[in-house]
Design a protein around this nucleic acid. Structure first.
Lengths: 339, 339
DNA sequence: CATATCTTCCAAACCGGTTCGGATTGCTTT
DNA sequence: AAAGCAATCCGAACCGGTTTGGAAGATATG
């Protein structure tokens, strides 16, 4: 059932039917109801390809997966993508996922030339992310998850990782900890840099040293969290508290602490950032983990909404948000042992 | 730059240019080279929307994410999706990801009516999966990752989980284990059923009992692996060997074994199924895990290829594959302790 | 009553490709 | 020389929507 057939059935023109369905004002209310009713009855859905060609809008948001990278194996990214798809669905859009064997840049160029998407979504922003410049050069509208220091203005949603770590460190310092380590994710990520800034700021605010050996960066995995923590605990002056950038790092961190014969809470404190994944819940830890929390899925949903507004002609300068994190007290952060 | 402009530049008709670029025989070789060269020089890429409208093919494969589910938080699914997108890219297709707040079925119906995709991809097949019937009823071509017992013929790629578990159990039985537990994923999954069949078959082949309390099913997470293993080890006759359906279950299983004061390999043996995720590698375990291996990413790539062949008119009956798993010996499976 | 305005609808053009049905040219056949 | 044929190319129709620029009739205004 296409538009022409539907119009014939109704004894109307394609024009009127199209306008009735798209909510234009210049069609009689009675007629509109007839049209809408008939569309429902005949199970009519506009052909997306035709709609796209006619409007120039594709109705899709694009995501490029870097081919070789293990990004998709990162459940946080997966959850973000789910949120994105969810939010896109609510706005009547879809997600166009393009994984390129020939490099991420080629993927963007191809999507741009083929006019395959309305907006590109960028996640896991690097400290100085070249992709932003590339996309703006290609004339592709972009919304990012995360932000960089650069001068370009682009719609983005970011979680305030700097403040999250700052508050975590201040909580620990307030409890009496003097040696506080930061177990962070990949060093080239903008979020990691933000965390380091927050860590430095909170430490210096309390007159504590931000010794270089107390900061580690690496993949956001259980394995790296374990190794980093083992190394840190083996140092001459081991930290009494750990701030972990993700629940996976925290898993490894906790395992390492246990393997060293220490007890979390009593001997060593841990605060982790929780992205709200259903599979790794802070309450399931023993003891339950104190966390900074921000739902990455909700961020994905919201970014899709921002992208839809961008397509709708909203001013890009108005489409940025920075979300505060929640600091949730549980049992893994306690006063350090007397010595 | 569109087709008309390109044709004008070349002094040719749209028809000829289109045919030259699409490799039709009725265009002079010399002309074709001129056209291809010009297309490259002017950076011409056909508008996907127009192409789709004209051909009726959408150039995209569809994936529907069940809205409420935590499927995307499952890194295995994420890696599968990455493989899918990768394979689709190689075939010049893209992935259309639709997450629906109003239920998975509504998502399929919408994509079908809007003719938004050429082929639907289904993963995580249930034992009796209603989606297959729905899609065939909607007239949507489908390729699945996994297979069910039903009578419908549909192109699929499946990993031979039954044989994987059978060989794992036979290895353990051959080493002398008499009590072998199966720590499996969600019970409603077809793969889980296959595993149970393999477990039963191998046990009975060795004259061993497949006691009901030695089989557990649940979410494929570290947490569930831990809890299940704790329960199993607390039983009157605890197993001396565990077969885990995923690396995450195995992580929890190993942690539980350690927490019970047992040593993997010496006291208890473990074999896990490894989907080849970069973040949880069997070599990183202590001791290194013996595994059955099959790359889920490669499966995704291949499924995209099968989907492309299906669009190309291949006979659905010829498009099914079952992949054997590799059994890789490491250190976590040893003879049981003397008693 | 003539004119202006509003409401409601439509025919036709357009988006950018693909493809059907010739048309033209040059080369073999008979 | 006429007919047959292959190689090349083109005009126009088509895919299924949206949108422009009226047109017809009803209502308001002077």
């Amino acid at each position: 059932m296409n538009l022409r057939e539907l119009a014939q059935h109704l004894g109307l023109s394609k024009t009127t039917v199209s306008r009735a369905l798209n909510g234009f004002s210049e069609v009689n209310e009675e007629t509109r109801l007839r049209v809408v009713e008939a569309a429902r009855r005949f199970n009519y859905t506009p052909n997306v390809s035709a709609k796209r060609l006619a409007t120039g809008e594709t109705g899709a948001f694009g995501v490029v997966l870097p081919g070789a990278s293990a990004e998709m194996a990162d459940p946080v990214f997966g959850e973000f993508l789910a949120g994105l798809a969810d939010g896109a669905g609510r706005c009547g859009r879809d997600l166009y996922v393009n994984a390129t064997f020939d490099g991420e840049e080629a993927g963007y160029r191809r999507l741009a030339r083929a006019k395959a998407v309305d907006v590109m979504i960028l996640a896991n922003l690097k400290v100085d992310d070249l992709r932003i410049r590339l996309l703006s050069h290609l004339g592709l509208q972009t919304v990012t998850c995360g932000r960089t220091a650069g001068s370009l203005i682009y719609p983005h949603l970011d979680v305030d990782h700097e403040d999250g770590v700052r508050r975590a460190v201040e909580l620990l310092a307030g409890l009496g900890h003097r040696t506080i380590a930061l177990v962070s994710g990949p060093a080239d990520l903008s979020a990691s840099e933000q965390r380091m800034v927050g860590w430095h700021a909170a430490l210096s605010h309390h007159g504590l040293a931000a010794a270089a050996h107390l900061f580690t960066a690496g993949p956001s995995t259980e394995g790296h969290g374990y190794r980093a923590t083992r190394t840190l605990l083996g140092a001459p002056t081991p930290p009494t508290a750990f701030v972990c950038a993700s629940m996976f790092l925290a898993s490894g961190c906790c395992r390492a602490i246990g393997d060293c014969g220490l007890k979390i809470g009593r001997d060593v404190s841990v605060i982790a950032h929780d992205d709200g994944l259903a599979t790794v819940r802070p309450e399931a830890f023993e003891p339950a983990l104190t966390t900074t929390f921000s739902s990455i899925r909700a961020a994905g949903v919201r970014i899709a909404e921002l992208a839809a507004q961008l397509v709708g002609g909203a001013d890009p300068a108005d489409l940025s948000e920075v979300w505060a994190v929640d600091l949730i007290f549980r049992d893994s952060a306690q006063a350090p042992p007397r010595r």
